[in-house]
Amino acid sequence: MVQQATPRDTNDRLAKRQAVSFGRLRKSIGRDAPLYLLALPGIAVLILFAYLPMSGLILVFKNYNFNDGIFGSPWAGFANFEFFFSSMEDAIRATRNTVMLNVLYMLTGTFFSVAIAIVLNEMRSKWFVKITQSVMFFPYFISWIIIGAILFSLLDYDKGILNQSLAALGLSQVDWYSSPWLFMVILVLANIWKSAGYGAIIYYAVLQGIDTSYYEAARIDGASRWQIIMRITLPMLIPSIILMSLLSIGGMLKGDLSMIMGVTFLNPLLLPTTDIIDVYVYRTAIRSGEFGFASAITLYQSVFGFILVLVANKMAGWYDKDSKLF
């Protein structure tokens, strides 16, 4: 996002540096003063809600108590880390769940988004594309708590649509809300439902930009529809797919607390697969006030998250120089 300096830019800057005089510098600061003013509110928000929380990570070396706060609490050395390593099982479970769910979201989400985009791209009926695209995009606008409420009417043991259907087919009913591994499938499906239409918009836009002469040439050569999709359309999407996937690696340790809260209501029976890092921190620290372990796992999430972002960016850079983010 940070723009590369173009040669002209650099030349300008060099020239400026050579000719810099105190008066000119003062003049430019005077002219730019309103800019600092305009940026000020944004800077304040970034400092308050992003940079100070980073410094709050020193919490991990503290024995937190409410009265002294983050910065005033007594130092605890590495006690919190010892705690962290002594209950590794929790940390491993939370990490596993976070990464597992994110990988599943990424794979299934990409597959469905790409499939929808490709299929829409084949259609010549403009109104059909328009209507279905709108319908498929709509779930993106719905909050997880609403999705949770609707899911409940599908999955409830006695009253849910799913168990009614199973019963009608003569199959035994399933207790979805006490089957953590089955519920993971539900989470993945819910995620597809909510975001496939959104993802499809991106890939569909890429497809709209393809030169139609490729298709004409293929058709003249007698290629079938399926061949055209596999040999032209899909290859055209591969760069975007790889790029989006690489970039999503950077977010592998981030979890969506709202999603888990909205869909499972923190159901303890489901925690074996839904206890992602963010849920764990919320449960132990914010709900129960046990800060030691949560602070260690927060630091670990931040640091490894940062490393993942750097790695993902590096890989994106190898793949395609222009797609590097910074």
Partner: peptide
């Protein structure tokens, strides 16, 4: 790229 996470955010807020 880098975030302090939920916990410091919550305590500060």
């Amino acid at each position: 790229l880098f975030s302090g996470g939920t916990l410091p955010w919550y305590l500060l807020s």
